[in-house]
């Protein structure tokens, strides 16, 4: 058996991913707090911790065989990787949102529509497909603030509970696509370590709480 290298995102998702891996091992998996590359004989995998946005890049370039990455990042970056499994964690929805008192029709009728987002490429594709004319304001954070301070008319962003939206007097105008964490694999690894990746994927599939998984289906 060849040892697999797995990239895990730091931050909010780390604990949830570790919880899944612990279930796989049937023993709690604790990682040393400051180490970013964890390689020890007692672990069946080599683990790399990386910024959530970098996970798919690591996998794409083949420095890791597998990675756990948010679908929002895959949609924005369009990394060339195999998407193998929905881990059913880190769930939220990518939405178009606007001020409380506006309806989607009002927004779309604006002559000069501006949309603020952390996902400029995804948003461009979305407004093209939707046939909307809009300028995109690319921001790094506090997207919800943009309409209140007059930077944009609406936002495209991730929403989980909707609380942040409400606090900023915004509401969802359209749900664009459900988001969750996915298992991705490198193009070459899936060929050179086919059996290992298949077994890992299968085992992981069995420990995922299936009731948490939405039944994804046809768009049309």
């Amino acid at each position: 058996m060849k040892k697999l290298t797995i990239t895990i995102p730091t931050g909010r998702l780390k604990d949830e991913v570790l919880e899944l891996l612990s279930r796989l091992l049937s023993t709690p998996l604790a990682l040393p707090s400051r180490q970013l590359v964890i390689e020890n004989a007692s672990l069946p995998w080599r683990i790399i911790l990386s910024h959530p946005k970098d996970v798919a890049t690591y996998v794409e370039h083949g420095v890791a065989d597998l990675g756990c990455v948010g679908k929002d990042i895959l949609l924005e970056r369009e990394n060339e990787v195999y998407e193998l499994l929905d881990l059913c964690i880190g769930k939220c929805v990518m939405v178009l949102a606007g001020p409380e008192n506006t309806k989607i029709e009002d927004l779309l009728q604006r002559e000069h529509l501006r949309i603020a987002t952390k996902y400029p490429r995804f948003t461009r594709r979305y407004i093209q497909e939707r046939g909307i004319h809009a300028d995109i304001v690319a921001l790094y954070g506090s997207i919800e603030l943009a309409p209140a301070i007059g930077l944009a008319d609406g936002i495209v962003d991730l929403v989980s509970t909707g609380r942040t939206l409400r606090e900023n007097r915004l509401h969802v105008l359209e749900e664009i696509i459900p988001i969750s964490t996915r298992l991705v694999a490198n193009h070459v690894s899936i060929k050179t370590k086919t059996r290992e990746i298949e077994e890992f994927t299968k085992a992981l599939e069995e420990v995922i709480c299936n009731e948490d998984c939405p039944k994804t289906g046809w768009k049309s």
């Binding site: 195999y82 998407e83 929905d86 996915r182 994804t216 289906g217 768009k219 049309s220």
Partner: peptide, 21 residues
């Protein structure tokens, strides 16, 4: 077309969803 697109993007998560149909 959806099946083809998912296959081309190597998006097997979407394909799994479609196959549940």
């Amino acid at each position: 077309e959806e099946v083809k697109k998912a296959m081309k993007r190597r998006d097997f998560t979407t394909l799994q969803g479609l196959c549940k149909d």
